[in-house]
Design a protein around this nucleic acid. Structure first.
Length: 782
DNA sequence: TTCTCTCTGAGAAGG
DNA sequence: TCAGAGAGAA
């Protein structure tokens, strides 16, 4: 019977899916699947769940599956529903945050939270922090809100409460103290931030023995996707829940099935730790299967990826292979400038479309968002439809957040973040002064702004009283409404619709608000509130985790946990523009990786980070492996960045590709171009590589004609760049200098003529900067 | 309270 | 280059 499930798997996939979840001693046997790009990992994960259920090794309620995005969770549910005749609705498949939210809702009392607790997204968290600092009269120059936010998030992601933080210097101590105050504020207001969601549920499981045991016994099989992206807290959570932390005897642990790819770990900057894979090997003793058969890319593309990534040292080791044949070589193009790069892109895309390739099958990738502008401009001028990923998403839009803030106040009036957000929006004469007075009153009475509002006297008190009555009225009036009716009522009576109708550019916002009503309707239908609510519960178990929450409360958490699409140009047949990060997990027939220049990709900031270069290389690896049939790489000699023209060297990654798989559309720069560099080891100097204009290696010193006969369009640029004689600069490369504002630094590059002469300086405190020598006050030191 | 101007600083992003 | 924050004026 289950052979159907396995019929379409290759041997290694089949092996992974059917790994015995129990060893010969009857103990749970965990697994680690090293799944290369395009090796069918989602399929393996889903089939594993189906196989476990179908072979009777577990019932659907005994499975816990964790993903990193809602999209991945949804996809898994859909595939599973197609494989098995079961209702997947009650299954615990979701993101870490979604599952933890579910846990905390079910056990809010034990977790020390009100039943109506709200979730703060990153924006909300920042405004809560700003409000906190203001209230405590803390100098936000000295303790920047953003930095405190980072401090708190990182502490929580490592599982650290204030008491666990080692006392360091004064600054550290103050940050810890503010962390404490922030947590107290959140507790008072009944809100939790994203990291708190995880930490709180970890602590819940840790400290409540009955709850822990309940879930440990329920979830006999725990599956994790994108394991390389887990952080320390998520790992600890997993260890605890599966009983591998020592809380259960070895005979009673759950089997963990982790799928990941260390070569695609690109999120260290947000707390992910690839080390977890090695830790997992050591602590869970998993059986290991490598999925190295790639079903996506042609040979040259795959060779390119393999070759590049082999330059990384810290790898578990894996080499992708394909049956698809070599296919097209990887094409490399050098443009003279960013605008010429863009127009080349347009030409090449037009040719691809003429050859019958769908626009949606063409992706333009870049390292940083700022690069999209010039490409968009070129596509727009050429009349080529395109879609940009990223940017503001539906639930992050200001008007939507305003509406949600009103809705949150109906649920939980103590939510001061929401209160502050809309107390004077639309404006109702409650200005900064009134708010300040209100905050003082609230602090004195140890209560929320909402409660303090009625105690205030005078004109401000009257206006605030009006606001409180408005909220109370909305709550009363919608008591028996359906969710969409409530949403509609609130956006009408809050005055939001009217406000935006009066604005010149408000039409879009009004439409978005109306869309929010639709979103509520869709949510009710999807979640099965109303007619088939019963179907949501699986037979056989009355789990404490499956409790009903009010539709509004659950819609609000949905809005926080799932920011929604950025719907711009969705569905249209358009060329796809996105950063390399957001391309992860996607695939396209044709892929362009643009801006392959030193300083950009690898990004200049990365060279100063621990293992930063290796992460950039993995990022490049991810980019390459998005391509199925055609891959183009481009770089430019000059690029406008932050309003200044920069001349960057070609990316070092271009040198790390196998020449047999490449085809240079512009003449490949001769070795001379790469400077007098000896065999690859000299770049790790911690500084951005910069074009060097040594007359004797790049240009014929006697004439302005380049020796390496570059593309004809390049020669103008070349002339300008060839001109500056070295010795006219007041500083030398490597010299230490002092700047009145940035302090001490070292000169790392020089370029330009006369008043245009610039120096790149690596400042100890402020990082790398370009300074115009005619303007900047620089003094040589030592 | 709100509009306008000036200054600053700049990476990637899911929940 | 350009978005966001903060200051100052109406």
């Amino acid at each position: 019977m289950y052979s159907d499930l396995l019929a379409n798997l290759n041997p290694e996939q089949g092996e992974a899916v059917t790994l015995p979840p129990v060893d010969q001693n009857g103990h749970a046997q965990s697994a680690l699947i090293l799944a290369g790009a395009g090796s069918g990992k989602t399929r393996v994960l889903t089939t594993r769940i189906a196989w476990l259920i179908q072979t009777g090794q577990v019932s659907p309620i005994g499975v816990l599956a964790v993903t990193f995005t809602n999209k991945a969770a949804k996809e898994m549910l859909i595939r599973l529903g197609a494989m098995l005749p079961i209702n997947t609705r009650g299954m615990w498949i979701g993101t870490f945050h979604g599952l933890c939210n579910r846990l905390l809702r079910a056990h809010h009392k034990d977790a020390g939270l009100p039943s109506t607790f709200q979730i703060l997204d990153t924006q909300d968290q920042l405004s809560a922090i700003k409000r906190l600092l203001k209230g405590l009269k803390v100098d936000d120059e000295k303790y920047p809100p953003k930095q405190l936010q980072y401090f708190i998030a990182h502490a929580k992601e490592r599982g650290l409460r204030v008491k666990d933080i080692e006392s360091g210097d004064d600054f550290q101590a103050k940050m810890a103290q503010l962390y404490q105050a922030y947590d107290e504020q959140c507790q008072r207001e009944g809100v939790v931030d994203f990291a708190e969601l995880l930490l709180r549920s970890y602590e819940l499981l840790k400290h409540s023995e009955p709850i822990r045991t309940h879930y440990q016994e329920r979830f006999r099989h725990i599956l994790i996707d994108e394991f390389q992206d887990t952080n320390a807290l998520q790992y600890a959570w997993l260890k605890l829940l599966s009983g591998h932390d020592g809380s259960r005897p070895s005979t009673q642990r759950s089997a963990v099935f982790a799928v990941g790819d260390d070569d695609q770990s690109i999120y260290a900057f947000r707390g992910a730790d690839v080390e977890n894979m090695r830790l997992y090997e050591k602590q869970f003793h998993p059986m290991m299967v490598k999925l190295e058969q790639n079903y996506r890319s042609h040979g040259h593309i795959l060779d390119t990826a393999n070759h590049l990534i082999s330059n990384n040292t810290e790898r578990l080791g894996k080499n992708l292979r394909t049956d698809a044949g070599h296919g097209e070589p990887v094409r490399i193009y050098e443009a003279a400038s960013d605008s010429l790069e863009a127009s080349w892109l347009v030409d090449e895309i037009k040719a691809l479309i003429n050859s019958g390739i769908q626009r949606t099958e063409i992706a333009l990738l870049y390292r940083s968002n700022a690069q999209s502008r010039i490409i968009e401009h070129a596509l727009f001028s050429a009349g080529l439809p395109y879609r940009v990923y990223g940017g503001l998403r539906f639930f992050e839009r200001a008007e939507i957040k305003h509406a949600l803030a009103y809705l949150r106040l109906l649920e939980n009036p103590n939510d001061d973040t929401s209160f502050s957000r809309v107390v004077n929006f639309p404006t109702r004469g409650i200005g900064a002064r009134s708010i300040e007075a209100l905050q003082d009153a609230a602090r004195a009475q140890q209560c929320s702004l909402y409660l303090a509002a009625s105690s205030l006297e005078g004109k401000a008190g009257a206006a605030l009283g009006g606001f409180v009555r408005l909220i109370d009225h909305m709550r009363e009036a919608t008591r028996h409404n359906t969710l969409p009716e409530t949403v509609e009522f609130v956006i009408q009576h809050s005055g939001l619709i009217q406000h935006y109708l009066g604005e010149r550019e408000g039409q879009d916002r009004v439409e978005n608000l109306q869309e929010l009503i639709n979103a509520a309707t869709a949510f009710i239908a999807e979640e099965g509130y109303g007619q088939d609510a019963k179907a949501a519960t699986l037979p056989g178990e009355n789990a404490p985790g499956d409790v009903e929450v009010s539709p509004l409360a659950s819609f609000l958490s949905h809005a926080s946990l799932e920011a929604g699409d950025n719907q711009a140009q969705a569905g249209q047949d358009a060329v796809q523009l996105m950063t390399v990060h957001s391309a992860k997990g996607l695939e396209f027939t044709s892929v362009f990786i643009t801006g392959l220049e030193e300083g950009l990709f690898p990004h200049e900031n990365s060279v100063n980070e621990l293992n930063g270069l290796e992460e950039e290389r993995r990022l490049m690896y991810v980019a390459i492996t998005r391509a199925k049939e055609r891959l183009y790489l481009s770089h430019t000699q000059s690029r406008m960045l932050h309003g200044q023209v920069r001349y960057n060297m070609p990316s070092r990654f271009l040198e790390e590709l196998p020449s047999d798989s490449l085809k240079w559309l512009t003449p490949k720069a001769k070795d001379a171009r790469w400077g007098g560099r000896s065999s690859g080891s000299t770049w790790n100097d911690g500084y951005t590589r910069q074009r060097e204009y040594e007359s004797n290696d790049f240009f014929d010193s006697g004439s302005d004609r380049p020796v390496t006969r570059a593309h004809s369009t390049l020669s103008n640029n070349v002339k300008r760049m060839a001109a500056p004689p070295r010795d006219t600069y007041p500083f030398k490369i490597g010299q230490n200098v002092f700047h009145t504002k940035f302090g001490e630094g070292r000169v790392t590059a020089l370029e330009g003529l006369d008043t245009d002469a610039r120096a790149q300086i690596h400042f100890k405190r402020h990082g790398i900067k370009w300074l115009q020598l005619s303007i900047a006050k620089l003094a040589a030191i030592d």
